[in-house]
């Protein structure tokens, strides 16, 4: 299905993935940016760069995972009580929205490689739309929390009649972590929107499919982070 990737995989790690033959070189086209000899080579570097960046992002959220784990040991009862008070149905719907959006963008990458440009573009923008749905639901949830009197920092009247230790901590980390995640969703939507536009109007040639892949991979990471935030904040 994706022949370019196969070829990339075959070259060993210690050597340049330079073109094997002149025919390949013509098919792949010249490099666009300075330090690389071929586009294929540049695409691999871009992909590796994105993965290294995502590794970094994972550690950013890793800080939250460490905090949540530690606080759960310290305030087991408070955290369980707070989870039960959370908007579980909305949060779970949001998980489903993100899983669907990930599927959409994965399929978009696949069909773009096959040259079905319009379908790919439509799927990318479906993903962006699902991102918007996610953010809307998230905002609704925040609204419901504020309505109940739950504000970050243990402020609000909800805390007047709920005083198990750890409740304030749970909600503050909840707001900060989901807020940071929502920022990542927004960045991912912008990124996908820009690439999606050039997919639709044909300015992104098939040989440059890696740009779409980069945006997609970023979007998947946002999804993966949410896959873990969901049980920690809503389920148990």
């Amino acid at each position: 299905m994706h022949t370019q990737r196969r070829r990339l995989k075959d070259t060993t790690m210690s050597e340049h993935p330079v073109h094997r033959s002149a025919a390949d070189a013509v098919a792949i086209g010249p490099a666009t940016s300075e330090p690389f000899d071929t586009l294929l080579h540049q695409a691999h570097a871009a992909r590796l760069g994105m993965w290294v960046f995502l590794a970094s992002e994972l550690l950013l959220f890793g800080g939250f995972f460490a905090l949540l784990t530690a606080y759960r040991f310290e305030h087991a009862d408070g955290f369980r009580e707070a989870v039960h008070a959370n908007t579980k149905v909305l949060g779970s719907m949001n998980t489903l929205v993100l899983l669907t959006s990930s599927t959409c963008v994965a399929v978009a990458v696949h069909v773009f490689r096959e040259g079905r440009r319009r379908l790919a573009g439509a799927l990318v923008f479906t993903t962006v739309a699902l991102g918007a749905v996610f953010l809307t639901l998230k905002m609704t949830e925040y609204g419901l929390h504020f309505h109940e009197g739950i504000f970050p920092g243990g402020h609000g009247e909800w805390f007047l009649h709920h005083d198990t230790p750890g409740l304030a901590t749970f909600w503050t980390i909840y707001f900060v972590a989901t807020g940071l995640h929502a920022m990542h969703v927004t960045v991912g939507m912008i990124f996908l929107g820009i690439v999606g536009r050039s997919v639709l109007n044909g300015r992104l040639p098939r040989a440059h499919a890696h740009r779409l892949e980069l945006a997609a991979v970023y979007w998947h990471l946002v999804d993966v982070v949410w896959i873990f935030l969901w049980p920690l904040f809503y389920l148990a």
Partner: peptide, 18 residues
């Protein structure tokens, strides 16, 4: 917001961990 504020259940040692 007092994420590490002991009076609200926070733990300053966790800041040191991070």
């Amino acid at each position: 917001w007092g994420i590490f504020d002991p009076s609200r259940g926070g733990d300053p040692v966790l800041f040191q961990h991070l």
